[in-house]
Structure formats: structure tokens, C-alpha cells
Design a protein around this nucleic acid. Structure first.
Lengths: 160, 160
DNA sequence: AACCTTTAAGGAATGGTTCCATTATCTAGG
DNA sequence: CCTAGATAATGGAACCATTCCTTAAAGGTT
């Protein structure tokens, strides 16, 4: 049972940003794939639809979404590129340092964690990254990730 | 009451790595400062002692320490450079997106979090990053970070 | 002390991300 | 509708943290 996300487009509009076909397409792409995309992978995906799309536009849109808190940044998964998180529900991320995929892990403890943070600082928490690193495989075939939902975690989701 | 850290030098030796003056100096530098240094800031610090030190050596040593789990990587604090964590006790990191400093926050919930991770995956957890982002200041003077231990958190430690 | 292997140094290369100038596009106001 | 003013997209150049490569310089072992 995959939860439908609140629209990124709506979030941009509410924050007072102009809507353009590119932004709409990027938001669509973000909301349809349940992985942890990089700027480049999004670019490739949306460029299929808008051949004139600039990589720069993807970076700008991601930055805008970050600033309004609609997405978060998870940093690198051992591949020196930034992975983004579209699922804003509090959860743990498991990153594999071999295949560089990240999957979500539901957590009950993380609510308490965020409460601790909120209490410790006066100002508002803008975003958070909770990532644990491991090796999901002995072999190096990414299609066989041991973090895969099929093997250990019904609700986990795997990305590239 | 600051806890004395287990030696990084010893960890390297135990892992079978050769000791060199440079590595020793870098480990010393890491263990004496209680912040979340970047490769460059370590380089500047140790270069004062070893003028011939190469930035490359710092990167290599940090990578080695990462691989044996003696330190962890926290990623960027909004400044597009990697900050390292020398305190391997489980804790929360608070990063300020204005002044790019990170401080530690003791947490009780984080033990439960790591237990959840350990249970979810079969393989060993290599490292983790638990970072929350906020703005510590209205004004932009880094010396006045609201995350500063003096103001809110006795055990917090602030870095650049 | 000699040998083999690991490490340091220096500099060049890489590549993700950002910056800049120009052109196109959106939205509000007339 | 049309126009004006502001925001966004594009393309390409620039940036800079990090990595790669090659050579010279130690470690540590027999």
C-alpha cells in the first residue's frame, strides 16, 4: 500500500513560485518514481519529454523544492552525488555502499528522535537526514540488493 | 565532562596499517579538536607542523579511517564540503545552514533507532549519519551560534 | 642492511554543482 | 487582450572539492 504524496506542484504554487512546464514535469517525475533520484537521473528522465531541458533547470527546481521543504537531501550514497528524498514522512534511509541504492525503512523510534531535536533547539528544524550505510551484497549485482523489499522489508523501496 | 576518545592511531595499527609521522599528526589533530572538521581545515592545521604535508595525504588518511570505522562522514553542512565526525558515540548532529557549523546533541532515542536498523538488515552497519538542519541565527555572525553549548545544550560542541 | 610493499607528494584531471549573461515565459495591471 | 516587469530557462563557462596517477620516499620484515 503506497501512500499518495501531496503534490509538489501545489507546494510550489502555495509558496508563490511560478509554474512552468519544466517545473511541472520535474515535479511529476519526482512524484511518480519512488526512489531517491539524483539531479542527473531526473534530468535524463524529464529530458525524454522536454528535449530542450537544461540540467541547470533541474538543479534550480530541486533547490527551490529543498528551500520550501518539499523534498530533502540525503547526500551521497558512496557515489559522490547527491540523492534526494521525496518521501517526507519521518523514516530511516539505508544506503548500500556497493550498489549506491537507498531504501526506506519505517521506524517508530524516529518520532522520538525528532522530538528531541525540536526540544533542544529553539528554531525550526528545516530538514533532516537519517542515513545508515552498509553493504547489501557480497556479490556486486545491483539487481540483487539485500535491502530489497522482497527480502526483508515489505514497505521498503529501492532506488538506483 | 569530555570523554577521552580511544586512539585513532591504535585503531590504524590494529587494522594493520603502517604508521607514518603524517598519519600520526593527522590522528592527533583529529583527536584534539572537538569539532567536525573538513579535509581542508585539517590540512591547514597539520601543515603548520609538517610544511611538506600534501592535501592528498589528508584525504587518504581520512578515507582509511572511514573504512575502518574510526570516524564517520556527515556530509555537507550547506557549504558543499564534507564534514567528518570523530565522536563515534551514537548521537544527533545539528547543522546550521547559515554558519555551517555542526554540534552534537546527546540522544536517548538514537539507541533504539540503531537497534531497528541492525534488526532490519542482516549485514553489519558500517556507519550512520543523523543530521538535522536548521538556522541557528537570525543574524549571520558565526560566533553567536544559537546551537552553542553556552546557550542551550551543556554537552553540545560547536565547530566551524 | 636489503628488499618488498605501502605511503607521501605533487600535479593534473575529473565531474558534480554553481555562476553568468541572454533569451524566453509567466502573471498582473491597464 | 496587450504590455510591462519580474521570474525562469537555457547554454556554456567557471568553480572547487575530491580523485587519479606517477614518482620518490619511507615503513616493516627476514
Amino acid at each position: 500500500m503506497v501512500k499518495k504524496r501531496t503534490g509538489l506542484v501545489e507546494a510550489l504554487k502555495e509558496a508563490g513560485f511560478r509554474m512552468t512546464p519544466q517545473r511541472t514535469a520535474i515535479c511529476e517525475a519526482l512524484s511518480t518514481r519512488f526512489d531517491h533520484p539524483t539531479a542527473h537521473s531526473l534530468y535524463e528522465q524529464v529530458k525524454a519529454e522536454y528535449s530542450s531541458l537544461s540540467l541547470n533547470t533541474v538543479y534550480q527546481t530541486l533547490d527551490t523544492l529543498l528551500r520550501i521543504g518539499a523534498i530533502t537531501s540525503l547526500g551521497s550514497a558512496g557515489d559522490d552525488t547527491i540523492h534526494f528524498e521525496v518521501n517526507t514522512d519521518p523514516h530511516i534511509n539505508l544506503a548500500c555502499l556497493t550498489c549506491h541504492r537507498i531504501c526506506d525503512l519505517n521506524s517508530t523510534a524516529i518520532q522520538a528522535l525528532e522530538a528531541e531535536v525540536q526540544e533542544a533547539i529553539g528554531s525550526k528544524v528545516l530538514s533532516g537526514r537519517v542515513v545508515y550505510y552498509s553493504e547489501c551484497l557480497e556479490q556486486s549485482d545491483p539487481s540483487d540488493c539485500r535491502f530489497n523489499p522482497a527480502s526483508s522489508n515489505k514497505e521498503g523501496r529501492v532506488d538506483e
